[in-house]
Design a protein around this nucleic acid. Structure first.
Lengths: 110, 110
DNA sequence: GTCCTATACATAATTCTCTTATGTATCAAG
DNA sequence: CTTGATACATAAGAGAATTATGTATAGGAC
């Protein structure tokens, strides 16, 4: 992660949403996509990314498919139906959080 | 804290902003104000609040004044000039974070 | 008169999430 | 033949919060 403490707790939401929008992706590809979407402001670190992906898989929100590209291993992640229902909740939760914070900080977040 | 992981890293910003907007306040009063502003969604816990206030004081962003109300002790906090300049940065940082997240999650945060 | 809730401060132990560090390995460019 | 990008993974440590605990006053319910 590049930006400060604020990102804590948003990683799962980011992963689920990016996988929802882009279909099958592998870890490194996700870091690049998030970097692109955030205009370089969110740089996922491997130490956070891989454990998070493993956890989401263990919870049945993602499923994997390992592919050999030449001699390189790639592990593709796809969101499951359960994951799809959760991502909606998570994004809604995030929007709620923004509304609440706007109210507390008395600022317009448009 | 009541809401999930999302609030991590926002506590300092909340404290500085609330003290900027409301002038002199004491700990318990801050929890009530934040509860009110957030419509009951952000419930500051004492274990987070007091260490955070002490830290901000140690850093010179807040200054204190202890008052005896009857037999009860109250510790009032006021934001310092240094604190005032920081709160602007923090709020701006938060708005940036929202913009970035909106872009990554591909949602409108209006 | 006593118990519960609210007010009011504070700290310690624990948990959770992420960063930093480390490790392995392929591949292309210069 | 070395460097940087690609590609995975785990372990040690740091930071911020939750939960638990402690002290104490005050008011209302019962």
């Amino acid at each position: 992660m590049h930006s400060p403490e604020l990102l804590k707790g948003t990683l799962q939401t980011i992963l689920l949403k990016v996988l929802t929008d882009n279909g099958k992706m592998y870890g490194y590809e996700i870091t690049q996509k998030v970097k692109e979407l955030s205009m370089g402001r969110i740089l996922l670190t491997e130490g956070a990314l891989y454990p998070a992906l493993h956890k989401l898989e263990a919870e049945g929100l993602l499923q994997t498919e390992t592919v050999l590209m030449g001699k390189r291993v790639r592990k593709y992640y796809t969101i499951t139906p359960i994951g799809k229902s959760l991502v909606k909740e998570r994004v809604a939760e995030f929007r709620d959080f923004i509304k609440t914070m706007s109210s507390v900080l008395q600022v317009q977040m448009a």
